[in-house]
Amino acid sequence: MRPSTSSPIPLYLQIADVMRDRIARVVWRDGELIPTLEQLAAEFGVARVTARQAVQLLTKEGALTPMRGRGTFVSAPAASLKPVHVVTSLDALADTYRVTRADLLTIDENSRQPPIREGDGTLARAYTYMKRVHSTGSEPYCVIGLYLDEQIFARARARFRKETVIPILMEMKPRPMSRAHQTLTIGAADADTAHLLRVAVDSPVARVQRVFKDANGVVVYYADVIYRGDVVKLEMDMDV
């Protein structure tokens, strides 16, 4: 796959993402010799200096090790990511988020509204928008852009800024949501998402839209969640 010249992400970073993904998926194994700079430049359609920048970045990260006269070798085992099960209850979802780390990228109060569809519910007066990357250990597995009813956010501002949202909502009494719905679709990672999840551009991702409503049909929580395709696990019992 050739890097996109129209992307705001530099070419060498896009190439590094592809190479990093090959190591993670064990296309390139620990201790294996990778292609030469000339071969990489030809594969990705870039100058040799651009290929060298990508290799130098992964060398700095410890994923590659150059050996004089022998070439460059993979020096990092594939990342071990715990599968993320697609759950169908809020309790199970809360349990999943309690054991992950959430890094806040963006927070914006009172100036955005969730892109709800007809039938999703009615809008609250104001929302707080947050964008986060969730990780297990040091490995990111999903990016979440969520809208939370401002009145609910105000009840636990400090916690919502630092902790994952759903476990906090589940602890509130009474719970602010009475109905919940989620939709899963399959897509491809854009440049920004790929960079945050450390995967190659156009890698498969699972996108989940979650909508929580209160008893009056007001949307109190809306989230667009993008999971790495290599961590999502969907299991369903089937009638026989």
Rank of each mutant, 00 (worst) to 15 (best):
A215G: 12
M238W: 01
I226S: 11
V240R: 09
P176N: 04
G217S: 12
Q56M: 07
P8L: 08
A16V: 08
M236K: 09
A94I: 12
T128W: 01
I186W: 09
R175Y: 10
K233W: 00
L104I: 01
E150H: 13
A154T: 11
R132A: 00
G31L: 02
P174F: 11
H181R: 10
S111F: 03
L148G: 02
D103S: 07
A94L: 03
T183Q: 15
N216P: 07
Q113R: 13
R2P: 14
V225R: 02
E43H: 14
A154I: 12
A124L: 05
T72S: 06
G71R: 07
L234R: 07
G62M: 04
R70I: 13
S111H: 07
T128C: 00
M236L: 11
G137R: 09
T136E: 12
D214I: 00
V205D: 09
V74H: 07
V87Y: 07
M236N: 10
D108Y: 02
F160T: 02
A76I: 04
T50A: 15
D224N: 14
L90R: 11
P83Q: 12
I152A: 03
I9H: 10
P8G: 11
G62Y: 10
Y222R: 03
S75I: 05
L93C: 08
Q151S: 14
W28S: 04
Y127A: 06
I15H: 10
P176D: 08
E171H: 00
I152F: 03
Q39H: 13
Y129I: 00
G187K: 10
M130V: 01
L64Q: 11
V26P: 01
I152M: 01
S111Q: 12
G31S: 04
E118V: 07
V133A: 03
Q209L: 15
K233Q: 14
V46E: 12
V225L: 04
P140G: 03
E235N: 15
Y97T: 09
G45Y: 04
Y221I: 05
P115G: 06
R112T: 00
P8S: 14
R117Q: 13
